[in-house]
């Protein structure tokens, strides 16, 4: 029974992180203006959100296809290999605003429920 509950909790956590992660990525990119994947993983981890590399990169790829992010390849002459930098588009800004508002509403609802 404990295992079943634990599985249910893991499933819930996975589901809720799916939407929350996109919000966090957009928020961080807005703060940093432009960032590449490896640094994004490190920054999220520093702020308490662990994301697997195999999960993040496909998500960034899809968010770019959706138009929330724009990507550009840059090669640092000192470091050598090319890096893909992400920044917010206008659509991304708008999406971030809407997601943030929605998330705030959800927190308000939850607080009322637990009072």
């Amino acid at each position: 029974m404990y295992a079943a509950m634990s599985n249910a909790n893991d499933n819930w956590r996975t589901q809720i992180r799916k939407g929350y992660l996109e919000l966090c990525i957009l928020s961080l990119i807005r703060v940093r203006k432009r960032i590449y994947g490896f640094d994004l993983i490190s920054e999220l981890e520093t702020r308490g959100l662990e994301v697997k590399e195999g999960t993040l990169y496909p998500l960034l790829n899809r968010m770019t296809s959706d138009g929330c992010l724009s990507a550009a390849w840059e090669t640092d002459n000192l470091k050598g290999h090319p890096r893909k930098f992400y920044s917010l588009t206008r659509d991304g800004q708008r999406a971030l605003g809407e997601m943030g508002s929605e998330f705030e509403s959800m927190i308000q609802v939850y607080r009322k429920l637990v009072q």
Partner: peptide, 15 residues
């Protein structure tokens, strides 16, 4: 593009 990005990630990690 995907393969290049993943390779970039690996090289960054090793750096």
């Amino acid at each position: 593009e995907i393969v290049t990005e993943i390779k970039s990630h690996v090289l960054s990690a090793l750096e």
